[in-house]
């Protein structure tokens, strides 16, 4: 039962970390909105799904790569990757701001109950997923391979592939940038102020509407970046991938302590590793079950998530 885990421990670990970083970025989208609005952003999974299409469109329609063409090299490679990343982030951020505008703003102004907002977010989430289903004819969309999946080196019997390395390094950089933005910038300070106490923040002259829009925007940027890395690793997308990934990422956010940016980081990484190990030991089909049982156990003993929720300094 455990042979696979022991045999391939290091390669599983590396795959888990790469998956974990994708979760980290998506759960940032959940955790930031939750911090400010105290509300699950149900549409974040579809924001992610739309983000993945940003990369596919860049690779396929802007740079005209096809399934058979040679992977890019040198400067061309960097150009394509960076523009795909930016495109994904742009598409996702745009979708996120749109979602805030359509599904959240009016209800927030009216000051209605949270469930109405939840259903309105579910409504826009269904609409976004279905729109993409119609656009793609319910078919999975493959992305041409731009980044060659060559093996860089071997460490303790584990192959280190280029795409995994790129994912881990770039995702870590994006995470650090976002975290610094929240910590240091004036806007980040405003976001933290709103998440601590909305009324006091308003009294201090914080423009609440702008802060909320920026929160959705930043969350969208992170989620979009996750979409790019998802394509880099898995090379295909579909209109319904948002649900599974979003669910896992939300679990990660709760696991780490929702509303807490560092919690999202640690929660995402633990969840990525946990999923990979669980699939190795019990088989892929029991992955989700294991994850949820772990989640329930964690919440039983640490109701605020593994790394706490109310860390005011890191909270966003």
């Amino acid at each position: 039962m455990f042979e696979v885990l022991i045999d391939q421990f290091w390669s599983l670990t590396i795959a888990g970390i790469a998956l974990g970083f994708i979760y980290v970025l998506i759960s940032l989208g959940y955790t930031m909105v939750y911090g400010v609005l105290r509300m699950i952003n149900f549409a974040n999974s579809e924001i992610f799904m739309w983000g993945t299409f940003g990369t596919v469109i860049t690779n396929r329609d802007i740079f005209h790569y096809t399934q058979t063409s040679e992977p890019a090299k040198g400067w061309k490679l960097a150009l394509v990757l960076i523009s795909a990343l930016l495109m994904s982030m742009f598409v996702a951020a745009l979708t996120a701001v749109f979602v805030e505008f359509v599904a959240y703003r009016r209800l927030r102004m009216k000051g209605t109950n949270r469930l109405a907002t939840l259903i309105s977010a579910i409504g826009i989430s269904i609409a976004l997923a279905e729109l993409m289903r119609l656009l793609t004819d319910s078919r999975p969309v493959g992305s041409p391979r731009v980044l060659e999946k060559m093996i860089l080196t071997e460490v303790w019997g584990a192959n280190i592939r280029l795409d995994t390395v790129v994912t881990i390094i770039a995702a870590a950089i994006i995470y650090i940038l976002l975290e610094r933005f929240i910590q240091l910038s004036r806007m980040g300070k405003a976001i933290r102020a709103v998440s601590q106490n909305e009324d006091s923040a308003k009294l201090m002259g914080v423009n609440l509407n702008r802060v909320i829009t920026v929160t959705f925007l930043v969350g969208g940027l992170a989620t979009g970046a996750a979409g790019f890395f998802y394509i880099t690793v898995f090379e295909y997308t579909k209109f319904n991938i948002g649900f599974t990934m979003g669910l896992a990422a939300f679990t990660a956010a709760v696991l780490g302590g929702i509303g807490n940016i560092r919690g999202a980081f640690l929660g995402g990484l633990s969840l990525g590793l946990l999923e990979v190990y669980a699939s190795a030991v019990l088989g892929t089909q029991w992955k989700a079950v294991t994850v949820f049982i772990v989640l329930v156990l964690v919440l039983l003993f640490k109701p605020n998530g593994l790394f706490g929720e109310a860390v005011q300094q890191t909270r966003a």
């Binding site: 359509v102 309105s120 409504g123 279905e130």
Partner: peptide, 18 residues
């Protein structure tokens, strides 16, 4: 399903209490 999602969105915005 698209129409269904939009109906949910619109009704919740117009009548948040149902």
């Amino acid at each position: 399903q698209l129409v269904f999602g939009l109906v949910l969105l619109v009704i919740m915005n117009v009548r948040p209490d149902g």
